[in-house]
Structure formats: C-alpha cells, structure tokens
Simulated assay, not measured.
Amino acid sequence: MIGISIHDGHRERLKNRFLKHGLDSFEEHEALELLLFYALPRRDTNALAHELLARFGSLRNVFDADPADLSRISGIGESAAALIKLQSELARKYWLKDREAQSALSSVRAAVDYAGLLFRGKTKEEFYIVCLDSRFRIRHTELLARGSSTEVPVYVRQIMEVVVRTGAETILLAHNHPGGSAQPSQKDIALTRQAALAMDTVSVPLLDHIIIGEKNAFSFSEKASVPKSAPGSPCEAEYSGSPRREPPPDKADE
C-alpha cells in the first residue's frame, strides 16, 4: 500500500492558490512554506517557516541571511539554505538587469540607486567596478573583491585590468559598508585618489566612487573628492547631483 502524506493535500492547495492568485494574499510564513516544499518534500515546512521568521525577524531578513546561518536551523540543510538564498540573488539580478536596460547613470542619484541594488542583502563588504560608455550607459559590471564585514582589499591594478580588458570609456566604483555609516575611511579616500590618477594615464575618467551604508550613501564626486584631470570636461559637466540630465549625444546622432 502506498502511503500518502497528510501534508500532500495542503501542499497542493497552497500551490494551486499561488498559481491562481500569486503571492498577494499570502502571509510571509505561507510564502516561505511554499518555497520550502521544493527543498524539503517530506518535512512539515509550515513549522520550519515559522521558526525561520522567528529567528530572523522577517521574510526579507530570511532571504538576506547567510546560508551558514540558515543551516543552523534544525531541518534546514544545505539544499534548503541554497534555495532560500537563490531567491534573493535571482531577484537582485533581475532588478539589476532591468535597471541597466532603462537609462544611463548620468547623475549621482542614478548611480546610488544602481549601487544600492548591487549590495542589497549583502552582509560582507564587496567592491564593484561599473564600466560605462561615453553616454554613461552600463556596459559591464564586475565584482572585484569580497571581504569581511568591515573591510575589502582592492588594488588599483585590478581596476586597471578590467578597464583594459573591457575597453571602458569611463568607470564608476562602488563598495558597501554593511551595518555601518557610508562615510569613507582613510583607505577609501586613498584608493579613490590613486584610482583616479591611474585612470588619468589611460584617459578613462573615474566618474564617481559610491559607498552604500546601512542607511545612507556617499558620493566622492558629489563631495568633490574625486581628482579631475580635465576640469570642465563634458564628463564632469554632465554627471552631477542635480536632477538627471540627458548624456551628450553620440557623434552619429548630431
């Protein structure tokens, strides 16, 4: 005789409810319970969902949690932890690609918004380089380094290697201070100045260096902390903290 789990009917009803109506009518624990079905086919995922929410405080915090911390919950193995983390990473990638396709990073606000997506849910310091064309459109984004919760080691040669490899026409640097202020450290300031001077040698402007903190953001360009090799240049004039302006037209458009 083939046994039927007492949870099978409940799972089927929850799945059909999602397929018919989406997640709008779901409580947080129900959404998490549904997700866990696919990693834990023989467990009571309702109880696990409640335990995860009690431990981390919210659905967002569950998705942002480190997989190692998730795995410490009894019943959440490596596969379930990976599935949970996959959701936030897929969502982040979706919104990044959507943002890249929308418009150019021609203002500090636009750059901060994009950098905020890069570091959403990150609990360790990470450092990115964003390669742009002459109209500030994103052509390539690359993670240069991942560090601890308080620092991330980055070297100018790493930045230069990406610039040469991708043929970037201008670049944006971004890193995060998870759980802290966006105010730059002395190391942040020194690296930014060194990077700007290095980019000057290959005629690739450093547009800005954005730091994303827990509740605020810092722009080196907005604070006039990025050395300018050519004051008054189109790049400097078009990128500002004022309301976004359209980037200069391509020569072919003139």
Rank of each mutant, 00 (worst) to 15 (best):
E214L: 09
V164C: 07
S225E: 11
F136A: 11
S5T: 12
E125V: 01
T150D: 15
L143H: 10
N46D: 10
R193T: 14
V164P: 01
G147F: 12
V130K: 02
I84C: 08
L118A: 04
A182N: 03
R13I: 06
S203W: 06
L32K: 04
S25E: 15
S149A: 11
A190G: 03
I129C: 05
I84Q: 05
V162M: 09
F218M: 07
D24G: 13
S58C: 05
A49V: 07
R157N: 10
E89H: 08
V156L: 02
H7R: 14
L118F: 03
S229Q: 09
E51V: 09
V202M: 15
S225H: 03
T141C: 11
K187L: 12
L117P: 04
R139V: 02
V152W: 08
R165M: 07
G116T: 10
I84P: 03
E238L: 11
K15W: 11
P243G: 02
Q194Y: 06
S58R: 05
S181C: 11
K122P: 00
P243H: 02
L52A: 08
G179M: 12
E169N: 09
A104W: 10
R42A: 14
Y94P: 00
E161R: 13
E126G: 05
R42Y: 11
C131Q: 07
A54C: 02
D208V: 01
Q158G: 08
P178E: 13
F26T: 05
D208N: 09
I171F: 11
A195N: 04
A101T: 05
Q186W: 02
I76T: 02
